[in-house]
Amino acid sequence: MENSFKFTGLFKRRRRHHCNHGRKNNCGHGRGNSLIHAELNQEYTIKKIRADNDKIGNFLFSLGCFPGSKVTVVSKIANQYVIVIKNARYSIDKELAWCIVVD
């Protein structure tokens, strides 16, 4: 928590993943194809989950989304990615799509 006064603006958008991952790689995120760059309707094998939050990693696991399992992106709508894991559809946001690294 910052202790100094800082006006950050009301509509400050959190830009955690502000970089073009994979292209220039100066963001420290490391190369790797996340679901953000995945092609539609192509089955990928998950390589790793790079969430900075254990909870979401564990939750994804309970859905069957973990290294070694398969995932397909069927739609990209606005900032949402519709993915299929084990025949079930989920809508995830771009931040989460970035977390799922595939081959």
Partner: peptide, 23 residues
Amino acid sequence: ALIIRKITGDEKVNDYFIMELPE
């Protein structure tokens, strides 16, 4: 929500969105 976020302190929360899409 905007006002309350400011009042309570704007701490970064890693809130990923995931929701099962029923047919």
